[in-house]
Nucleic acid binder design. Structure first.
Lengths: 143, 143
DNA sequence: CTAGCTGCAAAGGATTTGCAAGCGC
DNA sequence: GCGCTTGCAAATCCTTTGCAGCTAG
């Protein structure tokens, strides 16, 4: 499997370096993480790796379709491997990130496709709202 | 209407200043705009107004529920008045932002509420994918 | 040798914070 | 006078860029 990636790189005159392998491993292991988190993870093993390299590698891996990033609302985007297909639910209030099956958006995707001709990419989306806990405390406080 | 806001502010020991009025006007007029765009708009009338004030005012207005912001994908969030209720569709490729009726998410909202107890806020969401134009050119290029 | 990779430092854009001056009540 | 507001400058956060050195083929 990594062989495949290696070949893809090679075909483009690029190489699979230790840094790139480490970044990819970190992304796969962390599930979804910010560039900084990924960098920290990588640096546990190779402290010399610079965050610049992490950014550059993430860009590269994304162009190759190996990883994808999701904007979770405010600041830093999170990166995940392609297999990591789910929808993020971000709570306005507490910032908790839940994950639900991407299939939940299938109906919506169909509607958007037929009505607007828009091809929805469910995994890039972070839906926002209130998680069950905050919603409860919200209605209590709502006097 | 503005009287109401004025009173809301007053109740909290806050004031309706010219700056705040201008920012609110700009948000209402622009529909959805980045802080910087809002600032420019405001500065057309009052050049001395600082962007810091715009940020602070937007925060304030948001806390009061007068405006809300939406993350359109990458960088800058856009602000709109509460009435401006629609869903944004952002194209990965060309960055175009379409708007569709928030009602399209009603079904999804129901599912999320019953299954996960998550109260979806449709207007805060920017869905991403490929717009019809890019999708077409994409499948052509997909050889 | 040539091209790709990397680390480091600096630059850049967006947003926040600290602070002192200004103004309304 | 007191506290809310504001402008300005500086600080922060996140990301990108420029550059020189190193490395693989």
């Amino acid at each position: 499997m990594d062989t495949e990636l290696r070949q893809t790189l090679h075909r483009r005159g690029l190489r699979m370096t230790p840094q790139r392998q480490l970044v990819l491993d970190a992304v796969a292991e962390l599930g979804h993480a910010t560039p900084e988190a990924i960098c920290s993870k990588v640096q546990e093993i190779a402290p010399a790796v610079n965050i610049t390299t992490v950014y550059r590698t993430l860009d590269l891996l994304e162009q190759l379709g190996i990883v994808r990033h999701t904007h979770l609302g405010h600041g830093a985007p999170t990166y995940a491997t392609g297999e990591h297909e789910h929808v993020h639910l971000v709570c306005h209030r507490c910032g908790t990130v839940d994950e639900v099956d991407a299939g939940l958006l299938d109906d919506l995707a169909e509607v958007l496709a037929s009505r607007v001709g828009f091809a929805l990419d469910p995994t890039h989306v972070a839906l926002s709202g209130l998680c069950s806990r905050c919603e409860t405390s919200d209605s209590e406080a709502d006097v």
